[in-house]
Write a protein that binds this DNA or RNA. Sequence first.
DNA 1: AGCGGGGATGTAAACGTTTGCACAAGGATG
DNA 2: CATCCTTGTGCAAACGTTTACATCCCCGCT
Lengths: 350, 350
Amino acid sequence: MATIRDVAREAGVSTATVSRVYNGSSLVTESTTQLVMEVAARLDYWPNSAARSLITNRTYTLGVVLPDLFNEFFSEIIRGIDHAARARRYQIILSCFHDDSRELIAMAKSMRGRIDGLIAMAPDAGSAKVIANISRHFPVVLLNPGFQTKDCSAVSIANYDGARALTRHLLECGHQRIAIVKGPARNVDAEERLRGYRDALSDAGVNSDPSMEILGDFRQESGEQICADILRIRPRPDAVFATNDYMAIGLQSALLAHGVRVPEDIAIAGFDDISLAGYVNPSLTTVGIDAYGLGAKAVRRWFSDSGAGGARTQQEILPARLIVRHSCGGSRIDRISEEHQSNEQSGGSS
Amino acid sequence: MATIRDVAREAGVSTATVSRVYNGSSLVTESTTQLVMEVAARLDYWPNSAARSLITNRTYTLGVVLPDLFNEFFSEIIRGIDHAARARRYQIILSCFHDDSRELIAMAKSMRGRIDGLIAMAPDAGSAKVIANISRHFPVVLLNPGFQTKDCSAVSIANYDGARALTRHLLECGHQRIAIVKGPARNVDAEERLRGYRDALSDAGVNSDPSMEILGDFRQESGEQICADILRIRPRPDAVFATNDYMAIGLQSALLAHGVRVPEDIAIAGFDDISLAGYVNPSLTTVGIDAYGLGAKAVRRWFSDSGAGGARTQQEILPARLIVRHSCGGSRIDRISEEHQSNEQSGGSS
DNA sequence: AGCGGGGATGTAAACGTTTGCACAAGGATG
DNA sequence: CATCCTTGTGCAAACGTTTACATCCCCGCT
């Protein structure tokens, strides 16, 4: 592989000149530039970014660390991150982790020297110290942290508000016994959605009932499997809030297969507004969140933080939006958390 | 930020020793190791991977370049790549591109020095020369190339076989006038699926009819919009093969909304077997492909190629599987392309 | 006691860039 | 004509590691 020295020798100039050509320095004569470019093309010279970033201390790369859950929600986040990063000519290096905050810091360490900063979804509140440590090495922006932190900026989805508004909507539709299908334990989104549900119930003077809280894992199979559990509850619930759309759709499908009518016998609501939520039958009442926007905003936040005098401790919340379709009766489309609505371009996920 | 020199000085040893500790050299005394680790922890020393890979010429990172289409198909591919890479302790650096093979080479260039190899989905046949050039710099494995190449290995999905088998199934169900909703122009998967459809028709002695070939873009909105076009065709088709599930579900939903019965009036079939295909109503007959396996296998292929005496020109095809559900009538579940079935672990996507 | 060998550590040269500084040449200025 | 900028280029020192080679020390053998 040709190096900058080969190009320099072949072109009869110094490596400094070649470097200047590649960095668009204005100090190089037109004819020298031409010559260097020509030789570089002939030698098929590709600059080595590792060497470059070793000396400049810039990598033009962002690390991205997400949980190992690949559904449409995550692919949209990544898409948002990728687009926003590309707009600034940054690349992203992606890693997924399972649970552990030890694993998180190992990943951050292994990225040292190859990234300028990190966009991460923290596993749980226990990782706060780890995050603090990492952000001493480079700027970090957290996605949906389940905890308060003064060590870095964060961008969140209004999980709590969304779940609460959705539950309130179910109550307003006249449902009394509302069950919930929770997400995986220790998952921050899952916890916040559960909290919103409970608070909406207690606001309405309804006691939350542990037997109405069923554990799921955010995959549609789990929604399907849970059907039996739902039908076993006595007295039978008249509505179920599945904390994501995949589970809601799995559950709805299983209920219909058991001859239970939706929404007449049992109403179903989901969360996320995945692209197919409007296309199932009955179409799914859910809470729309802007996963693309979440990713994109995190990246923009990172750039603001990294600029001169960046705050580095900004906390933003993206609004969630109640989307009323047919799986609960009703047809109202409503917006919540408008007060948090930003005026930035959302970038337009589907 | 502490460097290896700081640690060495503070511990009263040479940088070589610190380096040896970090690389697990057996030549270091237990007590020295202890000391170095302790100092490193105290100084919060994180080794710089750029410097490391500059001298070792290894990055333990794979580049991944995919089209900018983020649906479940792509997120599964990425998941497969990530898992297989992580199993070898490799990281991935992800980039998406739009169309251009110029963009593809620009990305590959910008990754020089930061990756050991590349997993890429080539934009179109025109990029063959670009691929050849890139693979002179590091090993490349292509996903679903639309062209023959002797410059690198490739792993493909049996798009053609799958589409052909599906079309044959529609014919066997008694459908005569089968329309197709194509994918985006110049998309390799889309082209292969179209080819399979046409060949199945001509095998059956049916002329393919240009007015029955409608352009889509792989998104469910496009399936919905196309509904009107379908209903305008005279005589009306009695089956529609939408070349991915998103479009199929969008179309099905729109047809139902127009009072057209599925499958009685018009049968619908899709492609990909996304996780929700079995949960819509009627459930979708489709072709199952293992996107997770595609990504994982590409990575494993890369590792075989990079080993001593790696072939670097292996071509593999992953089988597609006809999945008969209710959107076309019938209920048979069938496997095709068994002859291509590999005996490797598929890795188990959902 | 002398010698050889091997185990632990240090020295210093790489890896491929960027960039501060020096320098040469030429043109403008006094 | 001497001086001073300006412009283009080269020299060489960094950046933070790894690793071949040298060195030193200690132990066991003859």
